[in-house]
Amino acid sequence: MKQCIRFTAFMVCLLVAPALADNPKVYPVGSLKPVDSVLKVKVGDPAPDFELPALKGGTVRLSDFKGKKNVVLSFVPAAWTPVCSDQWPGYNLAMELFDQSNAKLIGISVDNTPTQYAWTKEMGGIEFTILSDFWPHGAVADTYGLLRSSGEAERALIIIDMKGIIRYIDVHDINLRPDLGILIGELQKLNQQD
């Protein structure tokens, strides 16, 4: 009897799993291990510098923003997957909130630039900087301890202050979208402290 109820409860959980992105082109990945890597950085550390190809052309180096802007790194696991396919359009809508905190939002995925191009077009266009951590595969994600054993990145948010110091890290459950309110609250706190 208990086994039957457990099985039924399991089936119910499967049936009522959180909604996926609604675009039929989005690949359904199912429920994944929430976190599958070990951080190599911590709050208070200098952020490891990197230079990656940008979707809008050229390359972008993290240290270029030192002394000018706070930086928010938004690592997402992969293009054409649920949650990622709505997280960035939401941030795109809320760009003014990042601007108000003098923050440069940078999205990073392990996909190559042509894939990011097609994916962001499908999402209606993304205005903020998108970088490709494709080759060496996931090297930047790995430097931060955010590369999963499957080769995708974690869903993670990292705030770096104008001095280049890491001030906030959220390695989020890969299956869930982080609350924008918490991220913006952290940026506001950072500005109040400085």
Binding site: M1, C4, I5, F7, T8, M11, V12, L15, V16
Partner: peptide, 17 residues
Amino acid sequence: MKRLTLILLVLALLCTA
């Protein structure tokens, strides 16, 4: 017992349609 499981599954399906 099997009937209970079946009913719960049908209810779950109805709830999610």
